[in-house]
Design a protein around this nucleic acid. Structure first.
Lengths: 99, 99, 99, 99
DNA sequence: GCTACGGCAGTGGCAC
DNA sequence: GTGCCACTGCCGTAGC
């Protein structure tokens, strides 16, 4: 049982109205914390996009850059194993790994 | 101006109630067509999942298989150019392309 | 142990080359089945998009239509409970449910 | 023409090797900036998840909370218009707006 | 049971 | 201004 499920159960509070008020405050606090974090996240996303844009303006290919970032994020060993399997399958299918 | 925006404008229909009925029928038809297509789509998605499951049961690696499918979907030339760029960048960053 | 993991283990097959050939055929079959299904899926997705486009041309709002479809897909009771909770929270936060 | 496209074009640099080195440094800088930002983003995402988890532990429904956040993000007027349309369509389809 | 991953739909930015 | 494409968030699924 929690405050949100049953406001009247709030310890030491014998007024329903007050209990609701407490729940409201708690809810409001959660919502505001989330919204603040989402704002920060949005700001960071904008920054990331800006860096890509700047890189592009410097002649780098954005799609390739994204791949680089993704590759570096992976565990090298897992990545190697996956790549090896993919190549094996491609050979089996008669596909050139260079195309 | 369309039937949905203004049911009374339906040609040859001087009754608002009838016009609404027409709109309703049209709306219903659209919704049902979409729902039927979504059902078919779901069935196909299920089939795809089944094939992957079956492939896995036969010893194939699902993640690698998915990569194969994705690679085959790409334009070979674009893919080659992208891969080449990625490798160039990796070399520049001192990363092994094998890991 | 499966054919894909160890081609030589294929029962009654004492030739490595032949075993590889079998794996290749099996792999090829899986890939082709998936690709065929993905084509069908794409066709259906195109059809769905077409229906929305047609509905739009008839004066219906696509975004609202999508919501309708989503609502109808939900379990009515779950939906009702969720809606009720959302309204409760909105009231608690002093938000109008009409805006 | 940019440094990345043609390293030899870097002003005042008559050595190909040096030009490559410059490109490498620039590329490295972009990659590191992005990775730093992605780390920050990940931290924020973790924080957001934590807040939802905490809210859940306090008896709030996460799905409803997410809806609240989404609603507050929308333009109130647009939202109202969309809601009105959805209800109109539901009525036309004979669906209860309460279920 | 939850956590991580992949797929899907919606949104926004970009190019024509 | 429109259409296209990529990114982001959400959801359902699979694995620990």
């Amino acid at each position: 049982m929690t405050a949100a499920e049953n406001p009247r159960a709030v310890a030491g509070d014998n007024s329903e109205a007050q209990a609701h008020k407490v729940v409201r405050e708690v809810l409001k606090a959660f919502v505001e914390r989330i919204e603040k974090l989402e704002e920060e996240k949005k700001a960071i996303n904008d920054d990331i996009r800006d860096v890509y844009t700047e890189a592009k303006a410097n002649g780098f290919d954005v799609k390739a850059l994204r791949k680089i970032i993704a590759i570096r994020k992976m565990d090298p060993q897992e990545r190697e194993e996956l790549e090896a399997l993919v190549e094996t399958y491609m050979h089996a299918l008669g596909m050139s790994v260079f195309a």
